Amino acid sequence: MNRRTTTLSASVALAAALALTGCSSSSDSSDGSADGKPKLEVSGAYMPQPVMDMAGGFLTIKNAGGAADKLTSVTSPLSDDVTIHETKNQKMLKVESFDIPANGTLSLERGGNHIMFMELKKKPKQGEKVSIELHFEKSDPIKVDLPVEAANHNPQQH
């Protein structure tokens, strides 16, 4: 009977240790490991020089993390009215967010999904930079400088 109690106690202790290890390992992945958190990086950002009091912004957001995220808004000192738009059937439609898949990419490009700046406070010229801040559902905001390119600039055509 004594041997049985020792074996039972050891089994209970082992089960408890395994349960605690499982808990700590799952919480680690949700708040820091590559599996449980978006890992966002922005590239290819630019703004064609505006010819009116509105402008578009374009960039790519790569998510190297194991969790999806969403681009929920964009802010900029250039305009108090910055929105995100999708293009469907040659029409621009304001959207609340864009999905950024785990281990995937969100491309904002001419003729497609993009950032829209309305009622510009000033018209930036080619060679200048426009600062923006990207806001996400899960990730911290990311500040980006959009280089202002020629009005007809389109990297897809190069």
Rank of each mutant, 00 (worst) to 15 (best):
P155H: 01
K129S: 14
A17P: 12
S107P: 07
G112T: 03
M54K: 03
G32S: 12
L78Y: 02
L120E: 03
P141Q: 03
E86P: 05
E149H: 06
T105Y: 05
P50I: 00
T105S: 08
P38T: 03
P124T: 00
V95H: 04
S11V: 13
Q126R: 13
L40Q: 04
N89T: 13
K88G: 03
F117D: 00
I115S: 01
T7W: 15
L18W: 02
T87D: 07
T60M: 07
K91S: 13
D81E: 08
A68P: 09
G57A: 01
S76G: 02
K138P: 01
A55L: 01
L18K: 05
L93S: 15
D69K: 11
F58T: 01
E119F: 07
V144K: 12
T105C: 07
S11L: 13
S29P: 04
G44E: 14
H158Y: 07
T60V: 10
P38R: 03
E96H: 15
V148C: 03
E149P: 02
T72R: 04
M116D: 02
K122D: 06
D140S: 08
D80W: 00
Q49P: 01
K122A: 04
V95F: 07
T6L: 14
G66C: 05
V144G: 11
H135A: 04
E41Q: 14
K123C: 02
S26N: 10
A55R: 00
S24V: 08
R110W: 00
K123Y: 03
A151G: 03
S43H: 13
P147R: 05
D53Y: 03
P147A: 02
F58G: 01
N113E: 11
V95W: 08
N113K: 10
G36W: 01
I61C: 07
H114G: 05
T75S: 12
L20N: 12
S97T: 09
T87C: 10
D99R: 09
S79P: 00
S73L: 04
D140H: 09
T5Y: 12
S30F: 08
